[in-house]
């Protein structure tokens, strides 16, 4: 999905003169051709994230539509105050393209994970946030960002994810029904959706057929649409590759108390602790209880249908 997102922006550079891409010394294999062929629209601002963000804000003020590409901690954490003051407070059309969502980079270590980025993004008014499940959602998020006057943050996994959606004809700002079901709904965002799909297969023999809902636009969530999709459910389980304390589980809990919709809400995600475990992505997902098998096991325990 990383390449799909970036290629959508790169393609647009052929027809739009105002699009500019900045990298913080990341992107081997992503920009190789672009930086040769359209060198005038690309800049590597090195390992200097504070400058990278303020610079992008300044560039946006001269009329450019700026994309900033980096690993999530280096596009949102290291330079949080620059994102807050220079991009969001000034309401500039800069899109932060963050890669390595959640624990995608396992076992690179805690410094390279992004398990609190949605919590951070929630503190930034004006910022729209996307967390696509597949290349199609990534492409539509890219198209949205190209026409968006607000700051945008896109949370991408890496590359090689298969397409889940069958077509591109949907509104990327709305929660998406991926599979229909009864009584139980699983709400998720990002590439962990692939585990959720597998979990659904596993649950078939238990005669549990959850409805699956992807939330590509995580901030703001279209709650009206989401709650209409969740109508008549008995159980709703959120699954995400993010800390439990500040992801969509937490966001949905806040909406839940306002609306009191009648279903039971359970939240699955990464425990709120610094990660010292050394495992590959599958092992890490297992460890945190968000692998397909663990999701299925959890639902079997919680749900009576």
């Amino acid at each position: 999905m990383r390449n799909t997102f970036i290629n959508t922006i790169i393609d647009t550079c052929k027809t739009r003169e105002d699009v500019f891409i900045i990298s913080g010394d990341a992107g081997l294999g992503v920009f190789d051709e672009f930086k040769e062929k359209q060198a005038e629209r690309f800049l590597n601002l090195g390992v200097a994230e504070q400058n990278m963000i303020s610079f992008s804000a300044g560039l946006a003020m001269t009329g450019f539509k700026v994309y900033v590409y980096n690993i999530i901690p280096f596009v949102l954490y290291r330079c949080y105050e620059q994102v807050r003051n220079d991009i969001c407070y000034q309401e500039l059309p800069v899109t932060l393209v963050g890669i390595g969502s959640g624990i995608t980079y396992s076992p690179q270590g805690m410094t390279h994970y992004s398990v609190e980025d949605l919590g951070i993004a929630q503190t930034l008014p004006n910022m729209k946030v996307f967390s696509p499940i597949d290349p199609i959602e990534a492409k539509l998020a890219a198209k949205y960002s190209l026409n968006c006057e607000s700051p945008v943050y896109v949370r991408l996994a890496k590359r090689g994810e298969p397409n889940i959606h069958k077509n591109e004809n949907f509104d990327i700002t709305e929660p998406q029904l991926i599979e229909d079901g009864e009584d139980v709904a699983i709400v998720f965002h990002g590439s962990i959706g692939l585990e959720v799909l597998k979990a659904r297969e596993m649950l078939k023999k238990d005669r549990i057929l959850p409805k699956l809902i992807s939330i590509p636009m995580v901030i703001p969530i279209n709650t009206e649409k989401l709650f209409s999709l969740l109508k008549n459910m008995k159980y709703v389980i959120t699954v995400e590759e993010h800390f439990l304390n500040s992801g969509i589980g937490s966001m949905l809990s806040r909406e839940y108390v306002k609306i009191n919709p009648g279903w039971k809400l359970f939240t699955l995600g990464i425990r709120d602790e610094f990660i010292h475990a050394i495992k590959d992505l599958n092992g890490m997902r297992e460890y945190f209880g968000i692998s397909a098998a663990k999701i299925a096991e959890y639902i079997r325990k919680k749900v009576t249908v």
Partner: peptide, 12 residues
């Protein structure tokens, strides 16, 4: 912050 925004503007 302002210094760096200025550099971005000058580049723009």
């Amino acid at each position: 912050h302002g210094f760096n925004m200025g550099i971005g503007m000058a580049f723009g």
